[in-house]
């Protein structure tokens, strides 16, 4: 158990480090962000500060990461960024994820297509968990704030493009991938239903 004073000091240090690097090094910032949330979510009395922090920086981080995804093939080990992104999506401002979901999905789709183009299985294992997390985020946003969510997501085209990509995996022998796909499909229902003019 970390004493509360140390807790606050660690949090402040992480926030300082974050603000120092957030315009230069996206991946480092994601790492700091995830550390910060892990430390603070355990015991942090000033939750308002954390909420403000998340609202302020979530969008910037997502935008930076979307840019990073365009050149991810140049990185020696793309696994780490995807792991960092997964944790980040869990703990970022859901409205920021919603706002940038289309760009995020488009970039993730490009990465996912490496499976179809090069039979690169890593593309599947990188993207599936993030697809699911974004769909969870969309589902929660439409559940808690329907009108605002509908204003942000005006078309479900992008959702359809993701679903068509993952569809063949329902029939795969790999039970985990089939399960993931079915869960993604189930999570998409509310968004599709809320978004459509004609069910």
């Amino acid at each position: 158990m970390i004493p509360e004073k140390s807790h606050i000091l660690i949090s402040r240090l992480l926030i300082y480090l974050f603000s120092k690097f957030y315009q230069e090094n996206t991946l480092l910032c994601l790492l700091i962000w995830n550390c910060l949330i892990t430390v603070t979510k355990l015991n942090y009395k000033d939750a308002k500060t954390l909420e403000d922090f998340m609202v302020t920086y979530s969008e910037t981080l997502i935008r930076n990461f979307i840019d990073k995804l365009k050149i991810i093939h140049l990185l020696p080990d793309p696994e780490v960024p995807f792991k960092l992104l997964s944790s980040f999506v869990c703990f970022s401002d859901p409205m920021a994820v919603l706002k940038y979901s289309e760009s995020l999905f488009n970039q993730l789709n490009n990465h996912f297509d490496k499976f179809y183009l090069k039979e690169d299985m890593r593309a599947i294992f990188h993207t599936f968990p993030i697809y699911k997390l974004i769909f969870e985020c969309l589902d929660n946003s439409f559940k808690t704030n329907l009108e605002k969510s509908k204003e942000i997501i005006k078309t479900s085209n992008v959702i359809r493009r993701v679903l068509m990509r993952v569809k063949p995996f329902i029939l795969q022998k790999d039970r985990h991938l089939a399960n993931y796909t079915l869960q993604i499909l189930t999570l998409s229902c509310r968004t599709l239903a809320s978004n459509a003019n004609n069910l």
């Binding site: 479900s156 569809k167 329902i170 029939l171 089939a178 978004n195 459509a196 069910l199």
Partner: peptide, 18 residues
């Protein structure tokens, strides 16, 4: 078309097969 019904229809046979 983008809406729940057509997409559910698109997936129905796959689900049935599964």
């Amino acid at each position: 078309p983008e809406s729940l019904g057509p997409i559910a229809w698109e997936f129905f046979e796959v689900i049935e097969f599964k």
